[in-house]
Amino acid sequence: MARVRNFWNHSKTTALIWIISAILFYSVFQMAIRNSSSLDHRNPSTSSGPATDTPISNAEQRSRLYDKMAKDLDEHGATFLKHGETSQSLSLSDLFTVKGGSVTPILKAAIPPVRANVLYLSTEYSIPISEAVRSIFLPHFDKMIWFQNSTLCHFSMFHASHHIAPVPATEEEIEAEAYAVKAVAGDLCPLKIVLDRVVLTSTGVLLGCWQVISGTDPITIRAKLRSALPHAPVKQLYDAAILHTSFARVLGQPNASSSATVSELWYVEEFDVLALALNGKMKVRKFHFGCSKS
């Protein structure tokens, strides 16, 4: 019986998270559409400027990767509820603690410092997204969620050194790396991107997964950085095709107030296709459950 209750609690948690993620995706997707329209208005012609990559095969590669990521929570369950491993081979307990009813990051010195190359998302776009994420998730995870700083929203591209495979460097070598990265940036075309989907991973990371409409593709950017930084770790932290941002990290169960009781069974005649979904013509017969126990 205890096993059944645990399964039921897990199922309710997973279902709630999926519903919240779906609402978030719809909200952020609408903002992305508005931003895209605004961008088109400011830049009515895309024929001028440097030539851009053809993203067709790369886009398909990203879509397949995102499909796999979207199945992660279903296939592995909410492992973050067990405080297991999160991103970059670190556990949640390595990264966060709960003090005074709020989540606090645990800052540890990186020796040697991590040297990351990231694409920065302007606050013109990141702040509205952050506000949408916070408004949807905070009521349900007020003491068990960490939100990404909206002024530091980014897409991780390539590491010259990371904590799993550190590559020490002198100040002169670091300056040389920065100069090489600057040269790479000079060859890149601005990316016009659109939100593909929002995914909550089994490790509790809420990710925005993006597609590239035009500009230099992330696969090309990473290849250029690889050439410019020959001493970088062979094994990088992310797939070459991915273009993702972290919106938040969920650390625990949703609030008890997020639960619900269902006690009606409807028999619905839909006179329009998908009438329930599209507010079409229908006839509803409502039947209350006979059992009073939950």
Rank of each mutant, 00 (worst) to 15 (best):
R197N: 07
V98P: 05
S37K: 10
I106W: 07
K71R: 12
S36C: 10
S87Q: 14
L225S: 09
Y238Q: 06
Y125K: 04
L73C: 00
Q236C: 04
S150M: 11
M157R: 08
T123R: 11
S259K: 02
K235W: 10
S122M: 05
L195I: 14
Y238P: 02
Y125F: 10
L138V: 09
L251N: 01
A183G: 00
E175P: 01
T123P: 09
H140K: 12
P112E: 06
R249E: 09
T203W: 11
M1K: 09
T216H: 07
P50V: 08
Y267S: 00
Q148L: 00
W266E: 01
S36I: 14
L95Y: 15
S227W: 14
R226Q: 12
L191W: 07
V262D: 02
G84V: 04
P233D: 12
F147P: 02
T52A: 06
S93F: 14
L107D: 05
E85V: 14
E75S: 04
S38Q: 13
A15D: 00
S45C: 01
S47C: 13
V133S: 07
P50S: 11
H244N: 02
F289T: 10
L200T: 10
I33L: 14
T86G: 12
I17E: 00
A109Y: 14
I33D: 11
V284K: 04
R3I: 12
S292I: 13
V184L: 07
A132Q: 10
P190L: 11
S135N: 10
T13C: 00
P233H: 15
S38Y: 13
I221E: 04
A165H: 15
S93A: 13
P112M: 13
T52P: 01
K293R: 04
L24R: 13
K182A: 05
G204S: 06
